[in-house]
Each structure stands twice: as C-alpha cells, then as structure tokens.
C-alpha cells in the first residue's frame, strides 16, 4: 500500500465513518432545526468521502471505485482515527466529538489547499468551506451547552473527558505522515496541533470547560492496527445492503 493511497484512505475513512455516525441522529435529535443541521453535516462529510475515496481508488489503480472502498472493505482495512468511531452517546457527546474533529479537520484542510498534488488541493478547497461552517456551528454549540445549565455543563465536561484521549491520534505522525510532509502533499501535523490547541483552548475557555491535564492518546485507527469494537458494528449496518445483495444499485 503506497503512503499516498493510505493518506487518502485516512481522509476518506474519517469523513465516511463520522458521516455515518452523525447520520444516525437523523430523526432523533432533540429539535428539528438541529436534526436538519446534523443531517446537512453528515451529507457534507459523505460528499467529501466520495472525493477522497474516488481519488484513492484512482491512485491505487486496481480498478476499484469509491463505492468498493467504502462498502467492501473490512474493519482492518479502514484507516480512520478512533475518535470518529466513538458512539454518539448523548447530544453533548456527539457535538463535543464533532467539534474536536472539526477543529482538526479545518486545520488539515487549510494545509491541504496548498498541497503539491493539485487534485488534493482542489478537494481541500471545496471541503474547507463546508468545514468552516461545521466548526463554527459545533463550536458555538459546545460553548452554549458548556456555559449553560448545571446539567448541560456537567454533560459537556464528561464528554470532553471522554473524547480527549482520542485527540492525540489525529496529530501523531507516523511513516505515512512523514512521507506526505516530505513530498509536500500534506502539512506538518505538529504545526496543525499548535493551531488546534489555540482554537480548542479558546472555545473551551468560553464554554467554561476544563481540558484534561493528560497527553495519553489511544491509537491504532489511522494505522489500521487496532480499531475499537465499535467499527465492526458500524460496518455491519453501513455495508449490510451491499453484502446481502452484491452489486445492488438504483
């Protein structure tokens, strides 16, 4: 597996799995306005997935399509970070996960707009506009609920404590990231982390939430070494139709 292909899988699998997770709220959110907003976010992410996995399939050059990559791989072939697999939990947990991912995603996409690969830069330029809105909405909601009632504050602090150990993986550089940096395809994760910390720090301060004093980071998602038990459950639901009726289309 080439590093470039693997990097594209990471981008596409992050948006695919998170898009699916967020879509699970459709019809279940506390208010209809949030329901539509979350569904819009999920659709944006799935749209980005089509572009990333479409390019990944071309780069791989084995005749596979974006659909093949999304619907016919098993858990160990996925390269998404562990955070996006985490169950939705309550609404606060979903929005906290969304904000932490959005804040990473925004910096990553901004960096990718100047990628040495024109196709990557073009996809990033389209996606970054969507993600600018995602992070504004999720950030405002984190602030609203964090600096809200005693109960909403407590739920948001619990969500932050739960999600924080999954932040480190997004910025942990490995051989793939090193090659992407040296070839100018992707930005320096250490630089992204600085911008991420400033952004997230400011939002959490407004939200009156305390970032846990720990750098412990679960890992194994972006390398595919060890996903959480949740990924398999997502795939059984997401891939069911193509597995039961191979080649089905409309």
């Amino acid at each position: 597996m080439s590093a470039y292909f693997e990097f594209l899988l990471r981008m596409g699998d992050n948006t695919l799995i998170l898009g699916h997770r967020v879509s699970e709220w459709c019809g279940h959110t506390p208010v209809i306005e949030e329901d539509i907003a979350l569904a819009n976010t999920a659709l944006d992410l799935i749209g980005q997935t089509q572009m990333w996995l479409g390019l990944a399939a071309e780069v791989e050059g084995k005749g596979r399509t974006a659909d093949d990559l999304a619907m016919l791989r098993d858990a160990w072939d996925f390269r998404n970070v562990l955070m996006v697999e985490k169950p939705n939990g309550d609404f606060g947990q979903t929005l906290m996960r969304q904000f932490l991912f959005d804040a990473f995603h925004l910096e990553m996409l901004k960096g990718l707009t100047t990628s040495s690969e024109p196709r990557v830069a073009e996809i990033a330029a389209k996606a970054v506009k969507e993600v600018l809105y995602h992070v504004e909405r999720s950030g405002d909601t984190v602030i609203g609920l964090g600096d809200g009632t005693a109960e909403s504050h407590e739920r948001m602090q619990d969500a932050l404590n739960l999600m924080w150990p999954y932040v480190g993986e997004m910025f942990a550089s490995d051989d793939v990231d090193t090659e992407m940096l040296s070839t100018g395809i992707a930005p320096d994760l250490n630089q992204l982390r600085i911008a991420f910390d400033a952004h997230v720090g400011a939002v959490m301060a407004d939200a009156t939430l305390t970032i846990p004093d720990s750098t412990f980071a679960h890992k194994g998602g972006k390398s595919g070494f060890q996903h959480t038990e949740h990924l398999g459950h997502i795939l059984t639901q997401m891939q069911w139709l193509q597995r039961a009726y191979p080649g089905a289309s409309w």
């Binding site: 539509i36 907003a37 609203g144």
Partner: peptide
C-alpha cells in the same frame, strides 16, 4: 419560521433549514 436559542443560532438554523 423556526426555533433557536439566540439570534446567531437562528441565522445558522435558517441557513440549514431554508437555504439547503
């Protein structure tokens, strides 16, 4: 019309509900 906690979230909700 729609429901929202404040004017900023009302504009965001309007964006999501009425300009899709």
């Amino acid at each position: 019309s729609l429901h929202a906690a404040d004017e900023e979230s009302a504009i965001k909700n309007a964006r999501d509900v009425y300009t899709r």
